[in-house]
Amino acid sequence: MDSLQIAVKLNTPDPQAITALNAIKAMRLQLPPLKIQRYDLWDFEVIEGGIDTVSNVVKHFSDIVNPNKQSWMFAGEEISFPEEDTELQWVGIVVKDFVDSISDNWTELLKRREFPVLSLSHSVLWRMGYLIDTDEALVKKMALDLAVSKSRSSGLFSNPISQEVFFWS
């Protein structure tokens, strides 16, 4: 059994990321992120075939990746984010619903279609780009503050009652 993760990104500017950045601007934080990127993450647990199986699933279902609008890559060692990123210090947080129909339904569908996949689950990666010379620990703290909505005026990316968050590594 293998666990693999892919990250999928729109080739055009992502309106969700634009709105997120706007919403954060309105919060008037002392240290806001300067850029935001959004990725769909898909976690595969495959019975056999590893990379080949995942590539095969991606090829078969344009709902997961439509190459006419999205690009995708394997997370982990092979992940490579765009070059412009080097101007900023990036921190990523992953938001995942505790339960969701999207993951359940895809898992069922792949099993039904007899792909050697145990499960597929969906989450969202938000990458925030901070000024390059900011203290790393501070960046992490700021990112975590934004990651979890505790009240109307603090946090944004997840509702702690229905979602979990973790740092992207």
């Binding site: 129909s101 339904n105 229905s162």
Partner: peptide, 17 residues
């Protein structure tokens, strides 16, 4: 009041989302 203590999460229904 003001603290987020509930959520309206995505619909959970069999076979559809």
């Amino acid at each position: 009041p003001g603290a987020i203590q509930g959520a309206l999460a995505s619909n959970l229904s069999p076979g559809r989302s």
